[in-house]
Design a protein around this nucleic acid. Structure first.
Lengths: 211, 211
DNA sequence: AGGAGACTGTAATAAATGTTACTGTAAGGC
DNA sequence: GCCTTACAGTAACATTTATTACAGTCTCCT
């Protein structure tokens, strides 16, 4: 069953022999929405391949407040974690399941081995780094170039897309945490977006119209 | 002569055989301070290894305004460019020489070859990605978590470090460009920092005291 | 039913940043 | 010297974001 899902998500990328190795040495991990997967400062002993679900990656400031960096989806791996594995350093980010999620965990010893052995694996790793750097640039653009209302709108759109529905289950406070601002600011801007006809507000959820 | 500088900067990292290949296939490129090295949207046909000098990496918003991402120094390579080379995509950033700079340009065909052939090269590439991701996180922290006065102070310290002197040759307008704000804001904050005894202002230059 | 706690709306105010406008001064060309 | 231009200082004002405070409503628990 693991093999099937693995195949579905990754057989376009990896050669058969590597697929077998992954199935052999990887272990399945299932996480419920909201559960923490990696904490800042932790040593990472295995690398995740995402089979199903979604993960949000967060950064923390010195006061313990958060900032959402980006989401990971099926077929993604966490280049940040990858980076930690290879460098044997502590995690610089926190990872939390956005939905119920299935992962395959690859022990780091295999990473090095596969890197020299399989071209497809090397390409996957490079490709992951590339995607992640692009995503980080996007994050920087959003933070540096956009006002809070535009950031909020983008956040809602991302969230809608990730969850595959325009009805987002989230409180104002949670949004405030992700965008590193205060609940009052979010409530105010959400109300403005509602008046502009872009969203509809309900208790504990938001319907995104403008998609 | 190229070989000597190359050796000085990279012989800790690369095995002898690879050093020879680099010397053979790489071409020396010299850039004066202020000169543009890579432009956004350009296809990159070779990868730079920094021998000497410093490069600043910039991002641009839709109005053409800039934002400084980070500096590169000796021994660094531009993971962003690397990423572009491997993926055959356009550059997402602009690179400008911060000081007079010497580079070795590696043709991209060699990259793929060396990646499978030399372990030290693979490690270098992975290491570069790791460093770059960390640097990007740092940039995000600075933008997202700090006020403009703290960002300014950090900017001045970085710049002093890169140029190896506490007397920075720069105008308020240039700083404003790098930090993506206006000249007036920078002048105001610089004056405040001067009153706090952290810097001394002169025409076209700033002396950083608090280091 | 009643109470506690989470969630939302909103006003009032403060602080940070952005914008416009004007001044004075230094440097370089003629 | 005189003119032009770049650079820096600063005031006045606008906008954006942050903070504090409080009220109203919904949900769940007992």
């Amino acid at each position: 069953m693991l093999e099937e899902e693995l195949k579905e998500a990754y057989h376009f990328i990896f050669e058969d022999e590597l697929m077998e190795e992954i199935a052999k040495f990887g272990t399945l991990k299932e996480v419920k929405a909201g559960e923490k997967i990696i904490e800042i400062g932790e040593y990472v002993k295995s690398m995740p391949l995402l089979l199903e679900g979604a993960i949000k990656i967060l950064r923390e400031d010195k006061d313990g407040d958060e900032l959402l960096l980006y989401f990971l989806e099926r077929g993604d791996t966490c280049a940040m974690t990858l980076s930690c594995c290879l460098g044997q350093t502590k995690s610089e980010i926190r990872a939390v399941a956005e939905k119920d999620t299935k992962l395959i965990m690859i022990p780091i010893e295999k990473m090095e081995e596969w890197t020299s052995k399989y071209k497809s694996w090397r390409n996957f790793v490079f490709e992951s780094y590339h995607t992640r750097l692009s995503e980080m640039l996007d994050t920087i653009d959003t933070i540096a170039f956009l006002n809070m209302d535009a950031r909020l709108m983008r956040y809602l759109q991302d969230k809608a897309k990730i969850n595959g529905t325009d009805l987002i289950q989230v409180t104002h406070q949670e949004i405030a945490y992700d965008l590193h601002t205060s609940r009052v600011v979010i409530s105010r801007l959400l109300k403005k977006l509602e008046l502009e006809g872009k969203i509809v507000l309900q208790r504990n959820s938001i319907k995104v119209l403008d998609l």
